[in-house]
Design a protein around this nucleic acid. Structure first.
Lengths: 362, 362
DNA sequence: ATGAAAGCGCTAACAC
DNA sequence: GTGTTAGCGCTTTCAT
């Protein structure tokens, strides 16, 4: 610890026999007073241990906090371990840095629903990253009289947003699989609501999902397969609450156990896909010869092993969110930024084995 | 964007015909007024679009910002890409979350020396993570009348600190190499000062290093080899400004080019070691048969490939820093926390090849 | 249970 | 150039 004595702008002014304005100017408008006086002010400040204008008092007066609040989903640790979230965070931090704004991570304790932290945050605006539609923290943020930008989800009327075309992007990926010949597939997705459901997610649950992104990705896959003549309600979708490779692995296991005939596993994130790959390996299934596995996001670990996936510009997304919030106040509000994605042709997708091959080898 | 109408506690009180105190109590001390009145206050607040007490005004009054400032080294992007820094960040964020405190990332633009951001941050204390001795931002932080904790470096008199025994930890690692038979080694280290020096770092530069951690690690290696009879000034030490695998690779290349006889590369971070491994592979050198390579930190990527290194508890370090700052104000200040490290026996260290083996194979 | 008074520490017109 | 005036919006004794 390291603490100093109190001393205010007023006491400094008194000591110097000048007005508070003059002292204030010495710090904020050096050109408004003689260099000599300024020197004297700063000198006396040092002598008295005056640390300069109190940032909170200044904020109150100027109505500017100089910081952006960031609301992250549930568990912070997951966020810090999810490369996509990290990329976003980095981009946002970069944008804030450029603008000289602080980035205030709002403490969201997953245990207690502590909305108070949102009200306590001295910030000029909020960025909300990927939370469920019904998140109470989001509601608290929206009740604050400051600009807000949502990244990814949810889509809120009248609130700026930056995201991607989740539905279209994954449709393209699914079409690729269909072109390869896959018809019997399984899907692994992330949590669809705030309640934990580690297991199959029937169509009703898919449609009622509180997470727009997952809802859109499932819909995108459904779009493609439906057109290909596959009845969507028959496609098994397994949901996992925790976003981890362990989840991906167990979901893949559940899927493969329930229907050993699936030829492809479509995962709605690379993390899940990485887990599915591990499970396939554990079972002695070769990818892509025996099983096709795809992801979504385009994280480095996925790229390294040649995962077939959709790459989204996470860093750019973070930057865009920051710029949207901090940028010139374009009167054309609300605004929505949709970033481009890219289909990544990796090495984890191939035509399905024929029934014959399944029995007699390739 | 999403902005609401202004309305203050005072205007609400006026509208209701009650005092400001009552309205304040409705928010902060529900037990201080009748449920009925409270209901009316909150109801009217909603009707008037009053968003609740302004956090900045409250902070000014209570002298509590509800947030911890975090000062990170130079380039934010490096921090977000360095697993060790990330682990620290996660731990700190967790500690803040536990205490219901926000985490305010101070924008430190590496270009301009914008110390102002430190003065603008409305926080109750600072955590400074691994900055050079002479960092102006650190000076600015210390000039603020709030408690401060330094993580890793620098060591500042009278300021709390949390770190590890860098010198002792790496000495143990070096002794291991010596026991294996290594005498002719090269060292790859991170930047030693704020000026860029991508090349050899003579002993003088090592001693004058502005980064305590690097200084200590080099000294620790020197300790071991000196005792083993190796003259330290003859041990080539290559420095790299950027902390990346690319740096590790190029430093390894420089070292191997200048002295092809070295049998081991001691790197002061896992990231650098990973780069060195890549370079060794590129040259067709087998690790550890042809070349021993060691790191420092114990990051996941290193563990995955079996890197011989020192593991430090980065997450715990972050938590400890947070707790030190936020915890009970123990009068026994200043305090210093030194966390335990662990020597990780990986698969990248082995006895050096004999001269004979070098020519005729193992 | 409710109200009156007194600032928290600072900045921004505007006047001198 | 420098000072005067007027709050920014809130919390908190201390009375009532």
């Amino acid at each position: 610890m390291h603490v100093r004595r109190p001393a205010t702008l007023a006491s400094l002014a008194a000591e110097l026999g000048v007005s508070r304005t003059t002292v204030s100017n010495a710090y904020n408008r050096p050109d408004q007073l003689s260099p000599e006086l300024r020197r004297r002010v700063l000198e006396t400040a040092r002598r008295l241990g005056y640390p300069g204008p109190d940032p909170v008092a200044r904020s109150l007066r100027t109505r500017k906090a100089g910081a952006v609040g960031l609301l992250l989903t549930e568990n912070l640790s997951y966020a810090f371990r999810d490369p996509a979230a990290l990329g976003f965070l980095e981009g946002l931090a970069l944008a804030c840095e450029d603008a000289g704004q602080g980035l205030h991570l709002v403490p969201v304790n997953p245990e207690r629903e502590d909305v108070a932290a949102v009200h306590r945050a001295g910030v000029d605006g909020f960025v909300v990253y990927s939370v469920p539609d019904d998140d109470p923290h989001l509601a608290a943020v929206l009740s604050r009289p400051v600009p807000t930008v949502v990244a990814d989800q949810p889509i809120v009327d009248g609130v700026d947003r930056v995201g991607i075309d989740d539905r279209g992007a994954i449709t393209a990926l699914a079409q690729r699989l269909i072109a390869l010949g896959h018809r019997r597939v399984g899907v692994v997705c992330m949590r669809l609501a705030r309640d934990r459901n580690d297991g199959f997610a029937p169509v009703e649950r898919q449609h009622a999902a509180h997470f727009h992104v997952q809802r859109a990705r499932l819909a995108g896959i459904a779009d493609a397969f439906t057109i290909a003549g596959v009845e969507w309600s028959r496609v098994p979708v397994v949901e996992r609450f925790d976003h981890s490779t362990a989840s991906g692995a167990s979901a893949a296991a559940q899927l493969l156990d329930s229907d050993p005939q699936v030829t492809a596993l479509v995962c709605t994130s690379d993390i899940l896909a990485l887990g599915a790959l591990a499970e396939a390996k554990r079972r002695g299934l070769r990818v892509p010869q025996d099983l096709t596995i795809t992801g979504f996001d385009g994280i480095p670990d996925g790229e390294r092993i040649g995962l077939t996936t959709v790459r989204q510009p996470v860093l750019e997304k973070g930057k865009a969110a920051g710029k949207l919030l901090l940028g010139t106040v374009d009167p054309t509000r609300p605004r929505e930024i949709t970033l481009e994605t890219e289909l990544v042709t990796g090495a984890t997708a191939a035509p399905p084995r024929t029934a014959e091959e399944r029995w007699f080898g390739p």
